[in-house]
Design a protein around this nucleic acid. Structure first.
Lengths: 157, 157
DNA sequence: TCTTTTTCGTCAACCTGTTGACATTCGACG
DNA sequence: CGTCGAATGTCAACAGGTTGACGAAAAAGA
């Protein structure tokens, strides 16, 4: 849209100064960061990276439904994306001999190589990004956030 | 997708246990909560609510470009949504006498009424959601998050 | 004034998500 | 064995996001 770097909305800006807004802004910035890094060095988006990373970290090749649950999206969303990954040579599909309806997903060697390369880079870059940030203890922050999630989930809405 | 409430991915689940993942999970839950509430009582999504709330909170009717910046999305994204809001009777467009290209956006009385009703409800519900959460001090958490954002922005990547 | 650049909105093409309907397959059970 | 319900993947229609190209209007400059 703009040739210049887009000005991000800031905390306390036109969106207000609520915890929810602040969380959105922070998540946006982190996503942008990861996305830019992966796009520049490996030519894939963060969402694509996550897709193959989750498959790779599962103990056995998931089917469409299980991967959808892992990613927190619908079956249809995964179903539609698979052909693109296959074309890109990142994902292989295979049949479950025990169930003709199931489509099993696994990553290709190419994707495995990409993960092996990109994972440490991504981790190191995030560390760089945060290492001179002393004020709030990030581990404590992380624990607090998880506590909030547990609290919300426990109320079972 | 499922008739049953969907199982949300949990912290430390298949997505890993990183701060970024935890933030995503928390934001998802909050969005779901706000969205469900607004949808049930007022028949609009959170994203629609936000669209008119931002217009309403600006000192004067924004044009498409400025609203896009406020919302953190592209001009095209706003441009495409406007007709829907006009049809729904929530937004009015007007011409800028000083510039024939500009399209000024303002909310209708109906939208103003909706905001006046929904804003307190939404706020109260969030308070209810959090009031028995003593462990982490939410205000302190909010300040920490804003500090992290300021830190990231200051590095100017 | 005439030309050039910038701004502004829109369009087309694409990506990614949703829901609801659907056919197919599996599995359980009379 | 036949039948019915649940599981599975796909499809269509929609919502909302992106980028890049474009025309028209405004602004800037020679």
């Amino acid at each position: 849209m703009s040739p210049e770097p887009k000005a991000l909305p800031e905390p306390g800006g036109p969106l207000g100064d609520h915890l929810t807004v602040t969380l959105h802004l922070l998540v946006d910035r982190m996503d942008r960061f990861a996305d830019g890094l992966l796009q520049a060095r490996y030519g894939i988006s963060f969402s694509q990276f996550q897709f193959i990373a989750v498959i790779a970290n599962l103990p056995s090749p998931p089917d469409i439904t299980f991967l959808a649950d892992c990613l927190g999206v619908s079956k249809a969303a995964v179903s539609k994306r698979v052909p693109g990954f296959v074309e890109a040579g990142l994902v292989q599909t295979s049949a479950d001999p025990a169930n003709a309806r199931r489509v099993l997903l696994s990553i290709t060697p190419k994707a495995g190589q990409l993960l092996a390369e990109a994972l440490p880079v991504l981790g190191a870059s995030f560390s760089d990004e945060f290492d001179d940030l002393a004020s709030p203890d990030l581990d404590a922050l992380h624990e607090d956030l998880k506590a909030v999630i547990r609290h919300l989930d426990s109320k079972e809405h």
